[in-house]
Nucleic acid binder design. Structure first.
Length: 248
DNA sequence: TTTCGCTTACAGAATGTCCC
DNA sequence: GGGACATTCTGTAAGCGAAA
């Protein structure tokens, strides 16, 4: 087995979710390994090693699978969440110049925007009590964090016991959402709040798990820097990495 | 002669399209 | 699903004329 390739155990999990008819097309495992190689090393599609076949074919197949929801389905299938509490945060991925969105779309529609650090995409995530990814959302880099919290929670099949997030999420709208879901808000109040409400600081100390989740994903150069023009392709990269993170 | 500002051409990358 | 090629985008370098 070469570096970056799927282990036997990982392939057994991934294989049921792959597309393609038997007897046609190239080896699905070889293809998934090609995607992993690219995502983890950050090489351009056209620089894909020859052992993976024509780069163009692999690139297009990756997009087809992304549009068919294969990578997202895999991400959802591997989850065995602990909803005792969830942690929410965001990170930014600087966009490579080649990631400028396709002409038929707009930068905002492809989750691209200017922020500190330049042209970038913001990745919002909710992870379970053990620090495993549950749902991911992309927005342009300048987008605020707090409006995405309800979006992330709405994607969960059940309401968590508590939600842990940093001060950026201390808004009335967020607190209302959590109250409606009967989830404890473990969010420090902003310094400007007149009501400096208390929160469970022991649980808040657990917030590093979502930071570590991003850290693990960012070990892949293809996630730390966005090379994809479309949001769907970049989200597919994130889904694949988050799925493999569950198998670690 | 140098500097500035503008335009143009090109390179390099991901994605789209046609056809099989 | 695959092969070949086209399209579209940004950054950069080169070319050019005007002004200092």
């Amino acid at each position: 087995m070469r570096r970056h390739e799927l282990t036997e155990r990982e392939w057994k999990v991934v294989e049921p979710h792959t597309l393609g008819r038997l007897g046609t097309g190239r080896d699905n495992r070889l293809f998934v390994n090609a995607v992993l190689y690219r995502v983890r090393t950050g090489v351009a599609w056209r620089d894909l090693p020859e052992r993976f076949g024509p780069w163009n074919t692999a690139a297009r197949r990756f997009r087809r699978w992304a549009q068919a929801g294969v990578w997202e389905a895999l991400f959802q299938a591997v989850q065995e969440p602990d909803y005792a509490w969830v942690l929410i945060d965001s990170t930014t991925a600087k966009a490579h110049k080649a990631a400028a969105g396709p002409k038929k779309s707009t930068p905002a529609a492809e989750a691209l925007g200017r922020s500190r650090g330049g042209f970038c995409t913001k990745v919002h995530a909710v992870v379970d009590a053990l620090g495993n990814g549950l749902h991911l959302v992309l927005t342009p880099g300048q987008a605020a964090d707090s409006p995405q919290l309800p979006v992330l929670l709405a994607a969960l099949p059940e309401s968590p016991g508590a939600v842990v997030a940093d001060k950026a999420y201390d808004t009335n709208a967020v607190l209302d959402t959590l109250a409606q879901q009967q989830a404890e808000a473990v969010i420090p109040p902003k310094a400007t709040r007149l009501d400096q409400r208390g929160y469970d600081d022991n649980l808040y100390a657990d917030r590093n798990k979502v930071e570590r989740f991003f850290g693990r994903l960012k070990e892949a150069r293809g996630f730390a820097t966005r090379y994809e023009k479309t949001a769907s392709s970049f989200l597919a990269v994130a889904h694949l990495l988050a799925a493999l993170d569950w198998m670690r």
